[in-house]
Design a protein around this nucleic acid. Structure first.
Lengths: 240, 240
DNA sequence: GAGTGGTCTAGACCACTAG
DNA sequence: TAGTGGTCTAGACCACTCC
């Protein structure tokens, strides 16, 4: 039952499941086959399938629900949002967020964007600029850059009409699920347009947050750059 | 073999191991008993001990080394440091860090510190103020606050003489191992003394980073407050 | 070769969900 | 009641380290 590849069986099974996820064989929110079914399909024991699923569940790609099945994780569940929006009010109680679209543009990737998303300079790209408003207070202004070929039908209207996180829209309408992201944070001073957006004086201190988001197989599919007002909010980071 | 507590066996074993770690039965860097020994001690199968150890290894409390044994994790290994020091040079290559002690004081906890460390206002406390210098460039100035009763023999000399991370000193000299931490980040402007420390102009933008560190059993045992200069470095955060 | 952790299996039983 | 994931066991064998 050992395979030629020097890799434990459960890891090979995990990779096969990852392939199926990437290929869209099972959609976000939908159940994958039961452990016994998968064990039969791959000709391994249920325990080995279990270890493979454990690994994917640990990475938040799958969600187990006892008695019901194992499901493809989705950005629809509210608790997932706080994994990607690290800004918390000083008071502790997260308020509802309102999104206001400032700009939507189809353009071409510059060299910097091309480098971040592993595409070619001049390839089609989409730019979304928006403000996030917490309890009436504009707190974040950010630009979101996407590779155009993955988001062909995306329009300003679809962004404006969509309720909920952008990542929810991306996965339901375009089959692109953001799995993880890396952020780089610096301190910055508000320039004139940013200051106006966030209703702060010029040269007000802000966080400058840059994010690269990755889909399955560590494919970079989004680049963000935002200014965060931290007068009444803080950026939460857990070290372990 | 089921226990009266409504908790799976492997979790009970994990808690027992956690108790031993907290009690200092095995010191950082030392091996714990083999899986078979522990299985005999707790009257469970090796597989159950294995699951308990898996959980602790996932939380970075234990480190497995095939063929050698399972060891209590330590802050001595260099790769652990980057889990707690999230500042990275823009160039990518982390430089050696130099630490310069500015102040060392035994004092009493104020209400804010008492709240953070779950001690009483007026209890003994230790304050360490220092600068972190990367490749000759002062990048971080921070205050570290500790509960006095856990660090009775700590002196300015022991901090100055120690080579390596503070957490390394804490675990080797005082048996207190920092397991995880929570940080809150805001944007701030340099005041006069901070500007002088970091060699930046007044009102230069800085990150304000507050940290609470926890030992075993989520006991808070350290509070930090630091200013980070992000001209040539950035704060790294991973979302997933 | 002996001892350690790492993998894999087969089978039993428990806990939860749904029809 | 049937089907799912969750726990636990016992045993076999592999991979690595050290003597």
């Amino acid at each position: 039952m050992r395979s030629p590849k020097f890799s434990p069986l459960y890891r090979q099974i995990r990779d096969l499941l990852l392939d199926s996820l990437q290929a869209g064989e099972w959609r976000p929110g939908q159940p994958i086959p039961s452990e016994m079914e998968l064990a039969d399909r791959f000709h391994v024991s249920q325990g080995t399938v279990r270890k493979a699923i454990d690994a994917l569940a640990a990475d938040n790609l799958l969600v187990r629900r006892q008695g019901k099945g194992t499901f493809v994780a989705t950005h629809g569940e509210p608790q997932v949002r706080f994994r990607f929006l690290r800004l918390t009010p000083d008071t502790g109680q997260p308020a509802a967020v309102e999104r206001q679209l400032l700009d939507f543009r189809r353009t071409r990737a510059g060299t910097e964007l091309a480098r971040q998303l592993l595409i070619k300079a001049g390839d089609p790209a989409v730019m979304i600029k928006r403000v996030l408003i917490f309890a009436g207070d504009p707190v974040v202004v950010e630009e979101v850059w996407l590779p155009g070929h993955l988001f062909k039908g995306l329009t300003a209207a679809s962004v404006t009409e969509h309720r909920g996180a952008l990542y929810n829209l991306f996965e339901t309408q375009f089959g692109t699920r953001m799995v993880r992201a890396e952020e780089r944070i610096k301190a910055a001073l508000a320039d004139a347009p940013t200051a106006e957006c966030l209703r702060v004086p010029l040269s007000h201190p802000l966080l400058l947050v840059e994010r690269v988001s990755f889909s399955y197989a560590d494919q970079p599919v989004e680049w963000r750059r935002g200014f965060y007002k931290t007068d009444c909010h803080f950026y939460r980071s857990e070290l372990g």
